[in-house]
């Protein structure tokens, strides 16, 4: 009895483990750098967090189904280049010899559709040809990065302001802010809310969990496994496209190497948030906290002036530590369930 009480306390402490890590980090950096807890600094951190967070939300869905999406970083670069290119050069239809310039809302829709199509291709390859998600999206990571480079022959589109006479100005507004809250943070909040509601309260959410839990069993119980799997990759692609649009709008420049390695930040955020890499378990809330941990480590270490090389070492250690705690918690959980069972039987 006593044992159970002790375990319950430990259990409750561990449930918020990542949040606890976040708290420790914030206190540490605030003590080291007086500028860390100012309003403008918090907003700056949140802007960075939002980028990893949006990628992480798409990635959470994918990882819950037991998959992985390595292509998101490249899709960030590609959508930026496509959007930037459409504003700068328009779309030339060669046989007709005409160039069409779209307005910004249309370009946004095209870019998001591009993200969805890339996700669709990922999902198609994974479900129809039975290719491991790691391999399929690794391939797409290279293809998308290559296409991004090809779009401008590697060059950066600078100053994508659009042309007044063509009516395609205003792209930079996507990267602007509402009052003091940057748009990217609002978009992050909106996507997080929608994704969380879908995952918790809709049949689709239940299907996503069941695909990751046991694909065969869910197929037998009537879940359209292939359709659900394809959908999550499409969602991840759209999330990456959103980030691609935002980063290029913030900078008013589109760079084909933008987003390089960001898939790893997204995966780290998801894992820190307690989503299991083997699928079936995970929450959007956890990923958000995970994204905050990554963002706070990144920005905090820059602000207190830790060298780049140590930044990498420390980030790596924190990620692995968090997962070790996660495993420990899972074991504890199983043991407690067992003890409760035996106690009930005794009674």
């Amino acid at each position: 009895m006593k044992n159970i009480n002790k375990n319950t306390v430990l259990m409750n402490l561990m449930r918020g483990r990542t949040f606890f890590v976040l708290l420790v980090l914030v206190i540490f950096f605030a003590a080291k750098s007086p500028a860390f807890l100012t309003v403008s600094s918090i907003i700056s951190v949140m802007r960075h967090v939002a980028l990893y967070g949006i990628l992480g939300i798409g990635m959470t869905y994918v990882i819950i189904t037991g998959g992985i999406d390595l292509s998101v970083g490249s899709v960030v670069g590609l959508t930026g280049m496509i959007a930037g290119g459409l504003i700068f050069q328009g779309l030339t239809i060669l046989p007709l010899g005409i160039t069409i310039y779209f307005n910004v809302p249309t370009i946004v829709v095209i870019s998001l559709a591009l993200g969805a199509i890339i996700g669709l291709i990922n999902g198609f390859i994974i479900t129809k040809f039975d290719v491991a998600p790691f391999i399929a999206t690794l391939g797409m990571m290279n293809v998308a990065r290559g296409l991004a480079m090809l779009r401008s022959n590697g060059a950066t589109y600078q100053n994508i302001a659009g042309y007044e006479e063509l009516g395609n100005t205003g792209f930079h507004k996507i990267g602007g802010s509402l009052g003091i809250i940057p748009n990217v943070v609002l978009i992050f909040a909106a996507i997080a809310l929608i994704a969380s509601v879908i995952l918790k309260f809709t049949p689709l959410g239940w299907h996503i969990f069941s695909v990751g839990g046991n694909a065969n069993a869910s197929r037998l119980s009537g879940v359209k496994v292939q359709k659900v799997t394809t959908l999550v990759y499409m969602f991840s692609g759209v999330c990456a496209a959103v980030v691609g649009l935002i980063t290029s709008a913030q900078l008013t420049a589109a760079n084909p190497s933008s987003g390089d390695g960001w898939e790893m930040n997204a995966i780290s955020a998801v894992v820190l948030g307690g989503t299991s890499m083997s699928g079936g378990v995970g929450t959007i809330g956890g990923t958000i906290i995970g994204a905050f941990v990554i963002g706070v480590i990144n920005d905090g270490m820059i602000m207190i002036g830790v060298s780049e090389f140590w930044q990498k070492v420390i980030k790596g250690i924190i990620i692995v530590l968090a997962v070790i705690i996660d495993q420990f918690q899972a074991k504890l959980h199983a043991r407690m369930a067992l003890m409760q069972q035996s106690q009930e039987m005794n009674a």
Binding site: A35, V45, M303
Partner: peptide, 8 residues
Amino acid sequence: GTILQANP
């Protein structure tokens, strides 16, 4: 952006 936060 982050550097400017610490050193305005």
